[in-house]
């Protein structure tokens, strides 16, 4: 490839998932991130109890992300053929795990409301 610009990257992702799915996922990611920041700012702190539950969800997020990528690209875990493949694979899993943790944390905070932080340990 001659040069990989930000525009090219966006085009690549639109192609992978289709226009609506991609921008839908971007919108979902933005909404969840904003909601996460909102609860952080509102509560002025990170609740360790919610964080713990969020951590428990991470393996599920990792597995879901890997499954999603494999299905979308007609691939199988056995296709991993070299170090760079392992890195990409782990990258997908880590992204899935972190995304899921943020989602679960945010959902808890939004559902339980503000006063809840006082019930921490």
């Amino acid at each position: 490839m001659k040069d990989l610009t930000f525009q090219t990257l966006i085009a690549v992702f639109e192609e992978i998932f289709g226009f609506w799915l991609f921008w839908g996922m971007v919108a979902a990611a933005v909404i969840v991130t904003l909601a996460y920041i909102y609860v952080l700012v509102r509560d002025r702190s990170l609740s360790m109890r919610k964080f713990f539950l969020a951590q428990l969800s991470m393996p599920f997020g990792a597995v879901a992300a890997v499954w999603f990528v494999m299905v979308m690209t007609h691939s199988h875990v056995s296709d991993i053929g070299g170090p760079v493949d392992v890195i990409v694979f782990l990258g997908v899993a880590v992204l899935g795990a972190i995304g899921c943790a943020i989602l679960v944390y945010t959902l808890q905070s939004l559902m339980r409301g503000k006063g809840d932080t006082s019930s921490d340990l």
């Binding site: 992702f13 192609e15 992978i16 690209t73 296709d79 053929g81 760079v84 990409v88």
Partner: peptide, 15 residues
């Protein structure tokens, strides 16, 4: 490599 497959299967048309 799997990543080279990803290039052909998903990145090539976009590029």
């Amino acid at each position: 490599l799997w990543i080279s497959w990803l290039m052909k299967e998903v990145a090539l048309k976009a590029t």
